[in-house]
Design a protein around this nucleic acid. Structure first.
Lengths: 195, 195
DNA sequence: GTTTTTTCTGAACAAACGTTCAGATAGCGT
DNA sequence: ACGCTATCTGAACGTTTGTTCAGAAAAAAC
């Protein structure tokens, strides 16, 4: 046997990424084998290598795609001049964006240590750029005298850490709507920066 | 060859736990082999099985020890009646305790998915008890009318997530002392709960 | 309808995996 | 000094790992 009926790279490629994403998020990169991914796609393990040079690149691609989309989506937003309004926009954007992609977020935070040094540096750089987006808002607010923040760098990391926590417990269809969750967190963020 | 000079279970046992802790934290449970742990201890892989029935128990033991120590240490503290003071005590305790044990904390949060269902349930239960300790403080503060918190459950998770973030960036000997870090975070927590 | 290209199979590779165990030696109690 | 027990080695087990590749079939190009 060889090429199978209906096979097409436009179909198999994304399916491999989807399967890898889900399996990596569920069991962890190191615990998932190429054969498991292949089985999920309905293909033999060797076929995966038409789409990725190796397992590491598969992980890196997923993380890089996620971070780039995060940055691009945020950059596409029209920036509000008022620091308070900008912070609210960021807070709600962050929660919504991350809740819509639980698997990507999980991988981006948990699998950093499974990247090669070069790949790790690349992802860390993208992460840093996103953190800078928040920190620049905090700095503007401090400069304008509307935020009360002792250390903008720490506040940046603290806010992001707090917001990321949503992904550990929120489930669609639960006690609270996405809108309610956003509002509750925004309320805490707002108060934390002294607004 | 067989038993080696100077070998003793009181020495080898802890060394195995130390090595497993460090390696699991650095590379992840699934990515670390029993042979790597053994090499770190200076022993053959088979010798590990005098101290643990299997790899899974090694991980579970580390996580359980950590969570029990966390709960016991917190329980040993004399509880302050004032909710505000209690929250400050908790905040400073949490940061200090966790910064003193970066590897244990890392494992306790990252390796949950590598536990068997029974072990997972056991650790989650311990985790839940610790979260309850914070939530009870928040509830007392809300009842006393000194805290402004929309949802104590979410606030609990948000505060813990924020505080846990310290472990991702703090390094001893850096720009800020532990005392300073505690104060900055307490300032944010205090404001976030409307105190 | 024929040729070329794309996509996949199935087998193979060496290496590493967790775990077991008979046997050997070190340390301890007597 | 001797025997007993605790501790470890070294080899072995069956399985799984990531990856490669010749060949075969489907799809696309002509």
């Amino acid at each position: 046997m060889a090429r199978t009926a209906g096979s097409h790279s436009d179909i198999t490629g994304p399916r491999i990424q989807d399967a890898a994403l889900r399996l990596f998020a569920r069991h962890g990169y190191a615990a998932v084998s190429m054969r498991q991914i292949a089985r999920e796609v309905g293909v033999q393990a060797g076929a995966l290598y038409n789409y990725t040079p190796d397992k590491q690149s598969l992980l890196f691609g997923l993380m890089q795609d996620h971070m780039r989309e995060l940055l691009a989506t945020w950059a596409a937003r029209s920036q509000v001049p008022d620091p308070g309004a900008a912070l609210e926009t960021f807070t709600r954007f962050h929660i919504r964006f991350h809740l819509e992609r639980p698997d990507e977020v999980f991988i981006a935070y948990m699998e950093l240590r499974n990247l090669t040094p070069e790949n790790h540096a690349a992802i860390s750089d993208l992460r840093g750029r996103y953190e800078d987006a928040l920190e620049s808002i905090l700095k503007r607010g401090v400069a304008a005298g509307v935020f009360d923040v002792a250390d903008t760098k720490i506040a940046t990391l603290a806010v992001i850490a707090m917001l990321n926590g949503v992904n550990t417990w929120y489930r669609a269809g639960g006690r609270l709507s996405l809108e309610q969750v956003e509002t509750i967190y925004w309320d805490m963020v707002r108060k934390a920066v002294g607004l």
